[in-house]
Design a protein around this nucleic acid. Structure first.
Lengths: 154, 154
DNA sequence: TTCAATTAGTGGCATATGCCACTTTCTCCG
DNA sequence: CGGAGAAAGTGGCATATGCCACTAATTGAA
């Protein structure tokens, strides 16, 4: 058990993941700063872009994000005119989302900045390593973990 | 370039990392819920625990976290009596942090819950894979990435 | 058709994180 | 010694995320 290391230093998968997320997040944030978008907003806008007028729930699911959190995160983007929402034709409970022309333009602008950061990162860790890491992270994200909430008896 | 996949689906290392972080975070949060601690607070308390009355800057650096963010995150823990701070003897600018007895007790309590989640996770992905993933994440976190801020000319 | 259950979002509240502008202490050099 | 500049935190402001309690709209079954 290699007690040679710090006594039980953070072997916590979650803590390690968050730490890396803070680090990488700042890097991408810096890169995107000139566009005025945070890396999180860029990610969200991109997700909307590659979807076809997705419903909020659809986005939330794809991003493994709480629906209400998505709603909150969307607000500044709507306020700034990058995104707009509209009710679904067939189900008025459903709210769909799309980019405005300004949003499209901003995305194009941000993509250039993003690609610089992305390239820089992949130069450092290697494109293959990066791809493997992303695959591993996707696998983790899609694990559908659940604490044994007592009753599977249901 | 395998246009077979979603048209340029998120290859963004940052987006992928955040997505996984949200997913895993919720899992650990659920597991720790009975203790009343969030996984982030657990991580912070643990970090304090394994350090020797660390200065705030020391913790921030170890966790790759903004100093002010650390200050903010510490507040609820201080308010709830798990953590206390005190000025460094030799440098009054430095504020050191330590767990209170209640904080120690809470950590012990949370550790039991944490280990369940940790085990569950490692059962699913395999201990080795998990260790490799953590290593990769630590490597990423410690990359010390920086956008080419124009002037190395300085 | 009518009402209970389900589904999709919203709003409020709390924590997580960052950046920036300050304030307080130290350090160090002239 | 005294003031310029660095170092460590604090506070304010803004976004990121979650949970919970609700509301509105739909669906399903009696």
């Amino acid at each position: 058990m290699t007690e040679a290391r710090k006594p039980g230093f953070s072997d916590c998968n979650n803590a390690t993941l968050r730490r890396a997320a803070r680090s990488l997040g700042r890097f991408y944030d810096d890169a995107l700063a000139p566009s005025g978008l945070k890396s999180t907003q860029f990610g969200l806008i991109f997700q909307i872009h590659i979807s076809d007028e997705p419903a909020m729930g659809t986005i939330a699911e794809a991003m493994i994000m709480d629906l209400s959190a998505l709603g909150h995160t969307l607000k500044p983007l709507i306020r700034d005119g990058y995104v707009e929402t509209f009710a679904d034709k067939d189900d008025r409970r459903v709210k769909r989302v799309r980019l405005t022309p300004q949003g499209q333009a901003k995305l194009d602008e941000a993509l250039k900045l993003w690609s610089v950061a992305q390239r820089e990162f992949e130069d450092k860790v290697g494109a293959e390593q990066a791809a493997k890491l992303r695959a591993a992270l996707d696998a983790v994200a899609d694990l559908n973990l659940e604490m044994p909430t007592a009753a599977p008896s249901n």
